[in-house]
Design a protein around this nucleic acid. Sequence first.
DNA 1: TGTTGGCACTCTCTCTTTACGAGTGCTAAA
DNA 2: TTTAGCACTCGTAAAGAGAGAGTGCCAACA
Lengths: 359, 359
Amino acid sequence: MEISARKKRILAAVVENYIRSAEPVGSKTIAETAGLGCSSATIRNELSELTALGYLEQPHTSAGRVPSPQGYRFYVNELMERQKLSLEEAEAINARLNEKMEQLDRLMADAGKLAGQLTGYPALALSAPRAATVKRFDLLYVDANTFIIVALLSNSTVQNKLVHLPFSVDQGMIQKLSALFNAGFTGLTDEEITPVLISATERAARDTMGLTSIIAAFTIEALSRSREGEAYVTGESSLLQQPEFRDPDKAHRVISYLSDSGHLMSLPSAGSDSGVRVIIGPENLAEELRDSSVVMASYDAGEGQRGLIGVVGPLRMDYAAVAAKLQYIAEGLSRLLGSGEAPAGFGKMILKGDVTSDE
Amino acid sequence: MEISARKKRILAAVVENYIRSAEPVGSKTIAETAGLGCSSATIRNELSELTALGYLEQPHTSAGRVPSPQGYRFYVNELMERQKLSLEEAEAINARLNEKMEQLDRLMADAGKLAGQLTGYPALALSAPRAATVKRFDLLYVDANTFIIVALLSNSTVQNKLVHLPFSVDQGMIQKLSALFNAGFTGLTDEEITPVLISATERAARDTMGLTSIIAAFTIEALSRSREGEAYVTGESSLLQQPEFRDPDKAHRVISYLSDSGHLMSLPSAGSDSGVRVIIGPENLAEELRDSSVVMASYDAGEGQRGLIGVVGPLRMDYAAVAAKLQYIAEGLSRLLGSGEAPAGFGKMILKGDVTSDE
DNA sequence: TGTTGGCACTCTCTCTTTACGAGTGCTAAA
DNA sequence: TTTAGCACTCGTAAAGAGAGAGTGCCAACA
């Protein structure tokens, strides 16, 4: 069934009013604010039909209307105007992004924080999980009982570990091990580093002191950590300021769900086609998020990696503003970090609309 | 004024009952449960005096008594029995600690998580801030445009950074820089690395194409990060389950205060290391924590470092149980990480690592 | 056919009143 | 010094009344 232009305007008015006021919207309000040149009675008829179509809901017989999840979805897909950031906002974001450039290893989490502060919702930052391999090992001899393992991974991160030993090793042993690992363990994912391989290497090295397994264990851990991706959540408590989360139990359910990073990693799996993704209430796979909406934007983190920033809030979220802000931040991050290469291995993720990626 | 033994027993009964029930404790309840062989009227007289002395409070004329902060303090200092963990609890903690040994760099945060899960309160984990210096630099040549900076710090962490250059360097240059930094920058705190020193080094190296300042900037950042210490907070939302934090605004104030790690670093300054510390409500310096209590235990993190784990909860916290658990965890951590007294006879290796990843 | 004003109806929210109960403080007796 | 008894206080839960907002429907109108 096709929806008339006026119905669309009325639906948009309901959504936008409700987003602002958090209270059911009545026909009178719409007649006054939407500027449709018709009376509240007419609006009532339209509202009634929109309700029958499933776009609106009535909390009780004699209250105003509230958008249903389907109503929000329609709004997001077809009615929502692409919001432009104000100059101040854009500049504030740029300033924050530039100032963070110094601390690249924390950038991911900081990007989440920025998103949270700008939108006032709890924010999440995810790095796409991705199988990595070691490109190169270095073992640094420190003293007779100490050495450092340094591993350069295929995703261009460097992991290291300081190892203290209860016995002595000499430089020769360290060099031998280094050569051995560079020869035998580079290019392998964590799953390919099997106990069989380790013990074979151990025999080849004539290593009786267990050094091989120490290094192998470190390698496996470093790789699997990178494969699992990382997740940061910040500003969880700002959820408490939303009227729909004044119930501490409800808030607790959502927040504690968010706090378990394991859960979060499954969020983006639901599909990732365009720049900004909106998941509305019951569309969430996770039971705990059925009363919440999630808005996410992905960015190019360089080295063929993609990152994700997003916020979580009530259904009554200001989708237009949040989407605009997230997209702007994501674009900024892509510009700063991005390699310009096509994203590999993380599905096709093309930023929607006018991407100004001059790289 | 000296407090009679019976008053002490009554006070303890009030505190313990209130901790359990979260509701004001009446004279009748005490007469029935405390086993003092006297009637509720007698208890009433005593309660009245305890109230006059400031150990108890009355929410309103005709409710039971609630411990005042001073009452909690007296309870913690003199009445609280040192609780012993059950065998299951102790074993659960030990198991968790051992399983974490593999991932030492995350151990600090994990220890906090453990404390939180065991006690049901939000938990924090702090590393004591401490000025560090670089003990040793290594620059690893990767390819003509890429090298890795590895710095071993005096606090036995290792920091690294992968550097991509828009121009080529050769191995000789890398080696020269490495020698230069090992000669000129080891043993300095971040504050001692002045722009004057950097530019002097740059001149001395002749034609380093800005590499000197890149490495110097990395060094400063690594050192200042270590000097600021680190703070992790987990399980904030469990505060919402406490009856005294059902008010979302109150909970939000506390949680958002906790979420700012800058605030947390000032927490331990008020006191020193020995054993378990309890800070009760108004004793907190921070306004935001005046309605909360903090229990902290410090542990020996090895290398002369101390770490801190703690929990935050309502005044009505089960101090005895929480203190016992924290102490047990802290002792376990000290045993695992502690440098000085660790019995090396078991051939147990002490692995300590720090992982940073830069792009 | 679509739009409008009018009107009765419904339902929630808030305020007030009432009743209840838990616990105290006091007094007098043991 | 302890105890039993009793009046009193105060918060809370339940019940009732009134107001207000918004709907749904109907008849009239362009």
